[in-house]
Design a protein around this nucleic acid. Structure first.
Length: 444
RNA sequence: GGCCCUAUCGUCUAAUGGCUAGGACAGUUCCCUCUCACGGAACAAAUCGGGGUUCGAAUCCCCGUAGGGUCACCA
C-alpha cells in the first residue's frame, strides 16, 4: 500500500457531534507528526453508526479544520458507510478461515446474525510512542462482536481495514482508545495486516480533572471561534497542552510547531484545560498582528456576528489590540461604549473631573484652562499623541501630574478609565479636544 | 469492581542518577503612570506516602495511596 519510509497518520472523527477541542488536538498531533516527517495526514469519517452520524457534523468538522488552518489530505476512503462491500470481503475471509463466526440473532436487526471474532485469547504487548510497552490479556474480551450483520461492520473491524488500505503507519489517538488497541491488534493479526505504531495521547481534562466534556462548558471549536479566539492561538495552546518544545519558547506558528514536534516531549498524564492561559496566548498572538491585519480580523469577526463596526474603528483598533485578549472582548468594548468618547458629544460629571485630581477645584480649573492654552499652539496637522504629550507633560510635571492629567483625561473621555489623555486628544482631534476642555473648565 | 494508564508549584511544564528543583500562566508588590490596558522587575508557590538500590533518587525497583481511562450489536 505504502512504502515504509513515509509516515501516514489519520484523523478519523465520527460525525456524531461538532468538532471539539479534544478532536482538534488529536488532529493537530497527527498533523504535526506527519508533517515533521514529511508524511501525510488523512481525514476520514467513521460513520458506521448510522443513527448518530449526521452530514451537518461532517460539514462542521470540515469547516473547523479549514478555519484552524490545519492541513489534511482526503483519501479515496472518505466515509466508512460507503465501504460495506470492502469490509464484507475481509470478514467473509475471516469466517471462511474459522476466525469469525455468525452468532446469535441481532438485537438491532432481527432476522440477521451478529458476527463474532474467534478470540485467540492471547497476551498482547504493543509499544506505544508515549507510554512504552503496554500489555493486555485479551482473554477477558471474549469473542467480541465485530459486525452487526454480514453487511454492517462495527468500529474495530472498519478501523483496522481502513488503516490497512490507507497505509496508515502511525495511529495517534486519545488515551481513551488504549484499551481498544489489543482487540484491534488481534484483528490485525487475524487479517494478516502489518501492525502500525501506536501513540496514545493523554486526555484533556476539565478543572475537576475528569475528561473534558460538554458539561464543563465550551468544548466545540465553534464556541471558541465565536468567543473571538484566533485559530493560530488555539492551535498554539493545544500543542502546549501535553507537549513541550524542549526550550522555553511558548509562542509558535503552526510551521514552527511542525519543526519542533517530537513524541519524546509528550507528557504521559492528562492536562487540565486552562482558559486563562489560552487567553494569554491569544492576547500574545493578537499583539503580534500588524495593526492593519488586526483591524481586518476584527471587522470580519464583527461581520460574522452581525455587529456593525463604528466608522472610527480604524483609529481605535490599536487601542483595542492592546486592551482586549480576544476579538470578542474587543467587540464587547465597542458595544458597551468604552470608546464613546469618539462620538460627537459626551457627558462629563464635574465630580468625576475632580475625583482623581487630588487638588482644589480652583486649581483643577486653572490647569484645564492652561492645557487649553498650550494645545491651542499646536497645529492641526501636528496633533499627534507624542506632540500633545511633549506640549503638556512639562507643565503637568511642574504643577503635579494628577491635577492636570486626570481632569484632562476625564474632560476628553467622560470616563473613569480610558486610554491616556495624549492618545485621547490625538484620537478626537484638536477642535473637539479644545472644546471639551473648555466646557469642562466652565463646569467648575 | 476487573483490566489499563498516570502522579513535580493552584494550572501548563523543565530537570533523562549529580549545582539552591528552572520557566510560563494565574496571584501579590513595585516601576513605566494621572486612570484602565500594554510592557518591565521582584516576591510567593511543588517532587503523593513508605520502603529499597546507590557515594548520591523528582528520576530506577517494590508496596501503598490518590486520580483518570475503559469494560456496547457507540466510536
Amino acid at each position: 500500500m505504502n512504502n515504509n519510509n513515509t509516515v501516514v497518520t489519520r484523523f478519523p472523527p465520527s460525525p456524531t457531534g461538532f468538532l471539539h477541542i479534544g478532536g482538534v488536538r488529536t488532529a493537530l498531533f497527527n498533523y504535526l507528526f506527519a508533517a515533521h516527517h514529511g508524511g501525510t495526514m488523512f481525514l476520514r469519517f467513521e460513520d458506521t453508526d448510522k443513527e448518530r452520524s449526521k452530514k451537518e457534523f461532517e460539514d462542521d468538522i470540515y469547516e473547523g479544520l479549514r478555519w484552524l488552518g490545519l492541513p489534511y489530505q482526503t483519501p479515496n476512503i472518505v466515509r466508512q458507510s460507503e465501504r460495506a462491500e470492502v469490509y464484507k470481503k475481509y470478514f467473509t475471509q475471516l469466517v471462511e478461515k474459522g476466525l469469525a463466526y455468525e452468532a446469535e440473532e441481532s438485537e438491532n436487526n432481527p432476522g440477521t446474525h451478529v458476527v463474532r471474532f474467534k478470540n485467540p485469547n492471547k497476551v498482547i504487548t504493543f509499544s506505544d510512542l508515549i507510554r512504552g510497552e503496554v500489555t493486555f490479556d485479551t482473554t477477558e474480551l471474549g469473542d467480541f462482536v465485530i459486525a452487526r450483520s454480514m453487511n454492517e461492520p462495527l468500529y474495530h473491524l472498519a478501523v483496522v481495514i481502513d488503516d490497512f488500505e490507507m497505509g496508515v503507519t502511525h495511529v495517534i489517538r486519545g488515551e481513551d482508545h488504549i484499551s481498544n488497541t489489543p482487540r484491534q491488534i488481534v484483528l490485525i493479526e487475524a487479517l494478516g495486516f502489518p501492525r502500525p505504531v501506536y501513540a496514545h495521547m493523554p486526555l484533556i481534562l476539565a478543572p475537576d480533572k475528569t475528561k473534558l466534556s460538554k458539561r464543563h462548558g465550551a468544548v466545540s471549536v465553534n464556541e471558541y471561534r465565536a468567543l473571538g479566539y484566533l485559530p493560530e492561538a488555539l492551535i498554539n495552546y493545544l500543542a502546549l497542552l501535553g507537549w513541550n518544545p524542549g526550550t522555553e519558547q511558548e509562542l509558535f506558528t503552526l510551521n514552527e510547531l511542525v519543526g519542533a514536534f517530537s513524541f519524546d516531549n509528550v507528557q504521559k498524564s492528562g492536562a487540565v484545560f486552562d482558559i486563562v492561559k489560552l487567553n494569554w496566548i491569544n492576547a500574545q498572538h493578537i499583539k503580534r498582528l500588524s495593526n492593519a491585519e488586526y483591524e481586518m480580523r476584527l471587522r470580519e469577526f464583527l461581520e460574522e456576528h452581525k455587529e456593525k463596526a463604528p466608522e472610527y474603528l480604524i483609529d481605535i483598533a490599536p487601542e483595542l489590540q492592546a486592551r482586549a485578549q480576544t476579538l470578542g472582548e474587543a467587540a464587547e468594548l465597542l458595544r458597551t461604549g468604552e470608546f464613546a468618547f469618539m462620538e460627537a458629544s459626551i457627558t462629563v460629571d464635574p465630580l468625576l473631573l475632580l475625583q482623581g485630581a487630588k487638588a482644589e477645584t480652583g486649581v483643577v480649573k486653572t490647569n484645564l484652562q492652561k492645557v487649553g492654552e498650550l494645545l491651542q499652539q499646536v497645529s492641526d496637522k501636528d496633533f499627534t499623541a507624542e506632540k500633545v504629550k511633549d506640549t503638556i507633560f512639562p507643565y503637568a510635571t511642574e504643577v503635579g501630574r494628577a491635577a492636570v492629567l486626570w481632569p484632562m483625561r476625564v474632560a476628553l473621555s467622560g470616563k473613569e478609565k480610558s486610554p491616556d489623555p495624549f492618545v485621547l486628544a490625538s484620537l478626537i482631534g484638536k477642535q473637539k479636544t479644545l472644546l471639551r476642555i473648555e466646557k469642562a473648565a466652565e463646569m467648575l
